[in-house]
Measured scan of single mutants.
Amino acid sequence: MDVFMKGLSKAKEGVVAAAEKTKQGVAEAAGKTKEGVLYVGSKTKEGVVHGVATVAEKTKEQVTNVGGAVVTGVTAVAQKTVEGAGSIAAATGFVKKDQLGKNEEGAPQEGILEDMPVDPDNEAYEMPSEEGYQDYEPEA
Results as ranks from 00 to 15, higher is better:
1 M>N: 00
2 D>I: 02
2 D>H: 08
2 D>S: 02
4 F>W: 07
5 M>S: 04
6 K>Y: 04
6 K>R: 04
8 L>H: 00
9 S>P: 00
10 K>Q: 03
11 A>E: 00
11 A>V: 14
12 K>C: 15
14 G>W: 04
17 A>I: 12
17 A>G: 06
22 T>S: 12
23 K>H: 05
23 K>F: 09
25 G>Y: 08
25 G>V: 04
26 V>E: 00
27 A>C: 09
27 A>H: 06
28 E>K: 13
29 A>D: 00
33 T>I: 03
33 T>G: 04
34 K>F: 07
36 G>L: 15
37 V>N: 00
37 V>G: 01
38 L>F: 11
38 L>E: 05
39 Y>C: 06
39 Y>L: 05
39 Y>F: 08
40 V>H: 02
42 S>L: 12
42 S>Q: 06
44 T>P: 01
47 G>V: 14
50 H>I: 02
51 G>L: 10
53 A>D: 04
54 T>K: 10
55 V>E: 00
57 E>F: 04
57 E>L: 05
58 K>D: 01
60 K>I: 09
65 N>Y: 11
67 G>W: 09
68 G>R: 10
68 G>K: 09
68 G>E: 06
69 A>E: 03
69 A>P: 02
71 V>G: 02
72 T>F: 04
73 G>N: 14
73 G>E: 04
74 V>W: 15
76 A>M: 05
77 V>S: 02
77 V>T: 03
78 A>S: 07
78 A>D: 02
79 Q>S: 09
79 Q>K: 10
79 Q>L: 07
80 K>E: 02
80 K>C: 09
81 T>C: 10
81 T>D: 02
81 T>E: 02
82 V>G: 02
83 E>W: 14
83 E>Q: 07
84 G>P: 02
85 A>Y: 09
86 G>C: 14
87 S>E: 09
90 A>D: 05
90 A>M: 14
91 A>K: 04
94 F>H: 14
94 F>W: 15
94 F>E: 06
96 K>V: 13
98 D>S: 15
98 D>E: 13
99 Q>I: 12
99 Q>R: 04
100 L>E: 13
100 L>K: 02
100 L>M: 06
103 N>M: 11
106 G>S: 12
107 A>F: 03
107 A>I: 10
109 Q>L: 07
109 Q>Y: 14
109 Q>I: 08
112 I>L: 05
112 I>V: 15
113 L>V: 15
115 D>Y: 15
115 D>L: 08
117 P>N: 06
118 V>F: 08
118 V>L: 12
119 D>V: 07
120 P>E: 10
120 P>T: 12
122 N>V: 14
122 N>H: 06
124 A>I: 02
124 A>Q: 10
125 Y>F: 09
127 M>R: 05
128 P>N: 13
128 P>W: 05
129 S>K: 06
129 S>Q: 05
131 E>Q: 12
131 E>K: 04
133 Y>K: 01
134 Q>G: 13
135 D>K: 04
135 D>F: 10
136 Y>V: 12
138 P>Y: 07
139 E>M: 07
140 A>L: 10
